[in-house]
Amino acid sequence: MQLLLRDYPRDVWPDHPNFASSIQNWMGAHTMFRTLSSYVLEDTEAFIDTELDDQIYAQKLAKYGDLLLRNLHGHHSWEDRKFFPELGTAEGRLMAGLEMLEADHAALDATLDRFQRSANRVVQLAHLSPVDMRAEVGDVESSARDISALLTRHLSDEEDLVVPIILHHKLRG
């Protein structure tokens, strides 16, 4: 994965002539995922610490959890179907790295599914039985922590592999 990163380290990306707005938009989506993930985790911790009302927490969890899930699933689906094959065609030497990123997507999907089930349960309890929310929120916290950890590693690995390929081959300009 380090093959092109040595020639195109992160500190040169913004000033590189092939660093197009499409790359900035793609990386902007990654920033959004990190932000949404931190919102979900911070709000969950605040609820556990009784710093956030149950109804407000449920509303925020529904809003930011849904945004995180829908956008991540759509983004990763597009990467796996369109983006990574294009990059693999341009730079076949890094196919193993692209395949690793696709495997990360599968692992992240399983964690997102676990998060979705537990978050939906907590949101439903906010309407049906708010006193029972606290007993169920541990699963939300656990999966939110796992999502955050996976995203931290995966998005960094993805950027370190993908951006140098794009810069080197003048793709998506």
Rank of each mutant, 00 (worst) to 15 (best):
I48S: 01
M1L: 02
A149C: 01
T35P: 01
I23N: 04
R34S: 12
V131G: 11
R172N: 11
D15I: 02
I166N: 11
D109F: 02
I166D: 12
I48M: 15
D11V: 07
L4T: 06
R153N: 07
K170A: 15
A110H: 03
R121Y: 03
V137A: 05
D157C: 08
Y57S: 06
A46H: 03
L101I: 05
H127K: 15
L3T: 10
R34M: 10
A20W: 09
L68Q: 11
A119V: 03
R153L: 11
D53H: 10
L101F: 01
T44I: 05
S143L: 00
P164F: 06
S22V: 12
A119I: 02
D132R: 13
N120S: 14
T50C: 10
L61H: 09
S156C: 00
L36H: 07
L150M: 08
Y8S: 11
R6V: 05
W78R: 13
A110T: 05
T111F: 00
H73N: 13
S118H: 13
I23M: 14
H30W: 06
H169L: 02
P17R: 08
P17G: 10
G88K: 15
D160Q: 11
H75E: 11
L167V: 06
L125I: 06
T89L: 13
R172L: 14
Q59Y: 05
A90Y: 09
A46L: 08
D43T: 00
S21V: 12
R145W: 01
H168N: 14
R81G: 05
K63Q: 13
N71L: 14
L41V: 00
Q124L: 07
Y64Q: 15
R6T: 09
S156F: 00
D80R: 09
T50I: 12
N120D: 13
V137L: 06
F47M: 04
L72G: 00
T31Y: 11
D7M: 01
V122Q: 05
V137N: 03
L68Y: 02
A135R: 14
V140P: 06
T44A: 04
L5I: 05
L52N: 12
A106I: 10
I48D: 01
A90C: 06
W78K: 13
A106M: 06
Y57E: 01
L52D: 12
V162I: 15
Q116V: 03
P14C: 03
M1S: 11
S143M: 06
S21R: 14
Q2C: 02
A96K: 08
D132Y: 13
R134M: 14
L155V: 08
E159S: 12
N25H: 13
A20I: 03
L112M: 11
L125K: 05
H105Q: 09
L68K: 07
L161E: 02
G138D: 13
D109E: 09
I23Q: 09
L150N: 09
H154V: 04
E159I: 01
V137Q: 08
E45T: 08
A106N: 09
H154T: 09
L125Q: 12
P164N: 04
T111H: 06
F33Y: 13
K60C: 08
V131W: 04
D132H: 15
R121A: 11
R172A: 10
D53P: 07
A90F: 04
L52P: 09
P9N: 08
D104S: 09
K63S: 12
H76D: 14
K82W: 03
S77Y: 08
D11L: 08
E91F: 05
Q116I: 01
